[in-house]
Simulated assay, not measured.
Amino acid sequence: MTDDFGYLNARVRVRRAGLLPESFFQEALNLSFPDFVTALGESPYAEHLDGEDLGAVDRAVARHLAQTVGSLPQLVGGETREAVVMLLSRADLTNVKTILRAKEVGLPADEVKAHLIGGTLPEPVIQSMIEAPDAAGVVQAMVLPGHPLSAALREAVAAGGDLAEIEVRLDRAYYEGLRRLAKRLDDAFLQDYLALEIDGVNLSTAFKLAQAGGVGDPADYFVPGGRYVSEALFGRIAGGEEGAVDELAGTPLEPLADARDLGELEHRLRCLTLERASRGAFDAEGAGLVTGFIRAKEWEGARVRLLARRAYYNLPVEAVEREVFCS
């Protein structure tokens, strides 16, 4: 089996043609639920729809993502395959943290699913994690030999501490593994994009710490590997220093420089990372094309889930609009 991004990218180009156009989301924003299901049934998700209820939409999203991005590692071997698995596992990292947070606040299972974004975990494992009574139960549900986060989750929960400490242990384990791999591959796009993601993780964590009034030593929550959010800047933002984030002006993170609350930061950060990932479309021989495709499909699936819930529960457009669009 080939260990070559050039070969994989040729296959990805074909799959990119199946991305939903922006017009689908613009039109879906105001549809009733039956009309939304009809529209989805006229899209590439049609073959995976097995009903007309909300559960059928969730299953269609999970199956479609499994077919279009979850199958990518099967096309290549060696370090190329390892890199694709790690890229896909970033969604697993996000989903695990989402599930753990939901348990802290008692979020219903259906609402948890609305915020999941793809990944490599089978649907039965996801369901078991959602239904688990606590963090230890989530660990038991995710006993998957070979998964890059399985051991990290077990160790993070066993070490104790609050949710923020568990999350930073998971972030460090995931990003350190991917940083080592990107360095071995000597892939410039992947290294640059990865540094941007790490800066984003640190900014999000710093805002959360500031919102909580500070939690211990900020250095305990810092993830190494970014380029523009230094440990010193992280500490100042986490400590609640007004305007410290302004120092990002003039850097690739400038769109975040005047964010003043966590919601606004995370919205802008999502849009920024999606835009940077999309630049991988011009990386014909490296990891850029597949990185951009994976992120685009994860975002697509998340938008479909959110719009389905807006229609199903007849929520006002304003309830989801900011989460579905970047303009």
Score class of each variant (00 low, 15 high):
Leu265Asp: 00
Glu298Gln: 09
Arg270Thr: 10
Val84Pro: 03
Ala151Pro: 02
Trp299Ser: 11
Glu275Cys: 09
Asp162His: 08
Val76His: 12
Asp246Leu: 13
Ala17Asp: 03
Glu104Trp: 10
Pro124Ser: 07
Tyr221Phe: 15
Tyr193Asp: 07
Leu40Pro: 09
Val324Arg: 05
Ser150Thr: 03
Leu190Tyr: 10
Val125Met: 12
Met129Gly: 10
Pro73Gln: 07
Trp299Thr: 09
Arg309Gln: 15
Thr38Ser: 14
Asp246Phe: 13
Glu242Met: 06
Ala284Tyr: 15
Ser278Leu: 11
Val201Tyr: 00
Phe36Leu: 08
Leu194Glu: 04
Glu231Asp: 04
His147Phe: 12
Asp217Val: 08
Ala46Pro: 09
Phe25Tyr: 09
Arg11Phe: 00
Leu20Val: 00
Ile117Tyr: 05
Ala182Ser: 04
Ile99Trp: 02
Phe25Cys: 02
Val14Arg: 13
Leu307Thr: 02
Pro316Ser: 05
Val125Leu: 09
Gly288Gln: 01
Ala83Met: 08
Arg101Val: 07
Gly146Lys: 14
Leu253Asp: 02
Ile130His: 07
Gly106Asp: 05
Pro108Ala: 03
Val320Ser: 02
Glu155His: 11
Ser230Ile: 09
Glu111Phe: 15
Glu318Trp: 09
Val105Phe: 15
Glu176Leu: 12
Gly118Cys: 10
Gln140Thr: 15
Ala60Asp: 12
Asp217Ala: 02
Val245Ala: 06
Thr251Gly: 08
Arg179Asp: 09
Asp199Ser: 05
Pro122Val: 10
Asp187Gly: 08
Ala296Trp: 00
Gly160Ile: 05
Leu31Val: 10
Arg260Ser: 07
Glu298Asp: 09
Leu153Ile: 06
Ala206Asp: 06
Ala83Trp: 08
Thr94Asp: 10
Ala277Met: 06
Gly118Ser: 08
